[in-house]
Design a protein around this nucleic acid. Structure first.
Length: 576
RNA sequence: CGGCCCGUAGCUCAGCUGGCAGAGCACGUGACUCUUAAUCAUGGGGUCGAGGGUUCGAUUCCCUCCGGGCCGACCA
């Protein structure tokens, strides 16, 4: 009875559903439907001279229909693509009873329904490879109208473009925008490509805690939650770095994890509160080795995806063929600003910041100032893949001190298209140095730096048992996927990007129970609301009960609700 | 958090200085046995995001709120 709040098209589809049931057809059958082919295989391999595909069975969603009296064409979309199907009344209904075609197919099937078809493949006069259907089976009825997207030669007409619909109802986006499915297939291919490489080297894929008592391994604000039984706070991980290094201490030589991390910070085209990072740690290696390995990972992913290392992103063509440019952070600053800041004091650096219009504040040390200059003046210039190496110690508390350059660490970030794709170190394995660095972080935190790292004493304890020299690297899978699939926003490479919750009802609308308290029968509440009486206040403003009763009875008749008529006296009682 | 923009039929979008809410596709009915953005005829479908204000009259002007986008700030 809630049907009256549905759109006309939804009501019609629900009626079709009932008609199917009345005709003895289950619109949601339970049985397995055995198919023997996908649309793509037919389109690729059908050859009229070979006369192949003469007994095919496939299943998919009806995406368009062209009915011409006693014959019809439609398009069926399965996971592999779209193929045209052809139905003739006298094939579907060989006997006297033509209902299966005339009634069921023509009137009770809609765009969006999922059906199975069995028949043979042929080419139409227009040369279109088509399945001539001898029998069809309804597999699932679609009772909500699908946005209609027409297609001609790969061009979409009236495509669904509203970002809100695309992200909130990704299932609709995936149905009507075929290229979207491709992006997500490629995302999985990228991960597979990396996993293959790591497994071929004998590295172990592992899982580490998402709920952590101390959110370590990065500088970021965490999501906080609470465990009832332990009565203790827990945090969603901002990184898995410290746990993976514990495993290296434990004796594994190479470990990696594709990890969901969570950061309670802003959202924009490059940031989502939850995101995926691949982190890998390999014993007895240093960051120089890791640069070579990173080149190999990126190159392989590009080749596995595109068969070449040259990719297009927006207006740029980017070449992912190694070797990538390597430049130290200080040289990068010199390259982009013409200023050599090496050996400068903190005060001198502040003057440089002022000259370059780089914002800075009093609690920033030399490291942060360098970081800031690089971020403002250099980072976005590195379109072609570039390793920025040797970062200041202050901003790299988990990284080994540089073997030869004072004040710096053995760290690199890989920049592509002006954005960080990967971050790696020669891992700090000196437990006493690590403890001091944590204490430095604590001092920063006390000064008000809310992104300073927490101290993880158990991690220091692990290092005290001895961690082999190790190099580790983290790579942003979402950003890498954006890059390799030419997508401008992180929302386009996440199936379900974070959105504000949809508000269900406007607060102004009165609840059903409030109307029923006034004596309105339950089944009349929705007709009342549909007529504009959305609140009990509006109902009480009504002066002529007779007219309202008349309106309601008229609505009842017009929409064929089949409700018992209302008397003016009954309506009069609601208004008191 | 700040600036700009958007929200009208299932979808894509028009709607001028305020005056009866529109188109294409989709949907209903009818015709049509090789169509392909099928075609032809015909019909129905709207809380103009929500609430308030100004006005004789608001989809249109003003305010508040909700949702979304872009840019910036902050943040990896």
């Amino acid at each position: 009875m809630s049907n009256i709040l549905l759109s006309e098209q939804e009501q019609i589809r629900r009626q079709s559903l009932e008609e199917l049931r009345k005709a003895g057809i289950d619109p949601y059958p339970a049985a397995e439907y055995k198919t023997n082919v996908f649309a793509r295989q037919i389109l690729d391999d059908f050859n009229p001279e070979k006369n192949n595909f003469q007994d095919v069975c496939l299943a998919g969603r009806i995406m368009s229909r062209r009915i011409m009296g006693n014959a019809s064409f439609a398009e069926l979309m399965d996971s592999s693509g779209r193929i045209q199907i052809y139905l003739r009344r006298d094939d579907i209904c060989p006997g006297e009873d033509k209902a299966m075609y005339n009634i069921i197919f023509k009137h009770h099937l809609d765009i969006g329904d999922i059906i199975g078809v069995q028949g043979f493949v042929f080419k139409t006069q227009m040369g279109e490879t088509t399945v001539h259907v001898k029998e069809f089976t309804i597999l699932s009825k679609c009772i909500r109208p699908l946005p209609i997207v027409k297609e001609k030669d790969g061009i979409l007409f009236d495509a669904v473009t509203d970002p809100e619909m695309r992200y909130r109802q990704r299932y609709v986006d995936l149905i009507v925008n075929p290229h979207v499915r491709d992006v997500f297939r490629k995302r999985t291919q990228i991960i597979q490509s990396m996993r293959e490489l790591f497994n071929s080297r004998g590295y172990l894929e592992v899982e580490t805690p998402i709920l952590q008592p101390i959110p370590g391994g990065a500088a970021a604000r965490p999501f906080k939650t609470h465990h009832n039984t332990l009565d203790t706070p827990l945090y969603l991980r901002i990184a898995n770095e410290l746990y993976l290094k514990r495993l290296i201490v434990g004796g594994f030589e190479g470990v990696y994890e594709f990890a969901k991390d969570f950061r309670n910070e802003g959202m924009d085209r490059n940031h989502n509160p939850e995101f995926t990072v691949m982190e890998i740690y390999i014993a007895y290696k240093d960051y120089n080795w890791m640069m070579n390995f990173t080149e190999e990972i990126i190159k392989k992913a590009a080749l596995d995806l595109h068969g070449k290392t040259e990719i297009v992103y927006g207006e740029h063509t980017i070449n992912l063929n190694p070797p990538f440019k390597r430049i130290s952070m200080l040289d990068a600053i010199k390259e982009n600003t013409g200023i050599d800041i090496s050996g400068m004091s903190e005060d001198e650096m502040r003057k440089v910041c002022d000259r370059l219009n780089v914002p800075h504040s009093s609690e920033m040390g030399k490291g942060k100032l360098i970081d800031s200059i690089f971020g403002e003046k250099c980072e976005h210039h590195y379109i072609q893949p570039t390793f920025i190496i040797d970062y200041p110690t202050e901003t790299s508390p988990l990284t080994k001190i540089h073997r030869s350059k004072a004040g710096l660490t053995e760290r690199f970030e890989l920049m592509i298209n002006g954005k960080e794709i990967a971050n790696a170190y020669s891992e700090l394995n000196d437990p006493m140095d690590q403890m001091e660095r944590f204490q430095d972080q604590l001092r920063l935190s006390e000064k008000g730096d809310d992104e300073a790292m927490f101290i993880d004493l158990d991690f220091v304890r692990a290092l005290e048992y001895g961690m082999p020299p190790t190099s580790g690297m983290g790579m942003g899978i979402d950003r890498l996927t954006m890059l390799l699939t030419n997508q401008p926003s992180i929302q386009d490479v996440l199936f379900f990007p974070q959105m504000k919750p949809e508000s269900q009802k406007s607060k102004a609308e009165s609840q059903k129970e409030e109307f029923m308290d006034l004596g309105v029968p339950e089944e009349w509440v929705e007709p009342l609301k549909k007529l504009g009486y959305t609140t009990i206040e509006k109902l009480k403003e009504v002066e002529k009960a007779g007219k309202l009763a008349n309106d309601l009875n008229g609505f009842n008749k017009k929409n064929k609700l089949g409700l018992n008529g209302l008397s003016p006296e009954a309506v009069e009682k609601w208004l008191k």
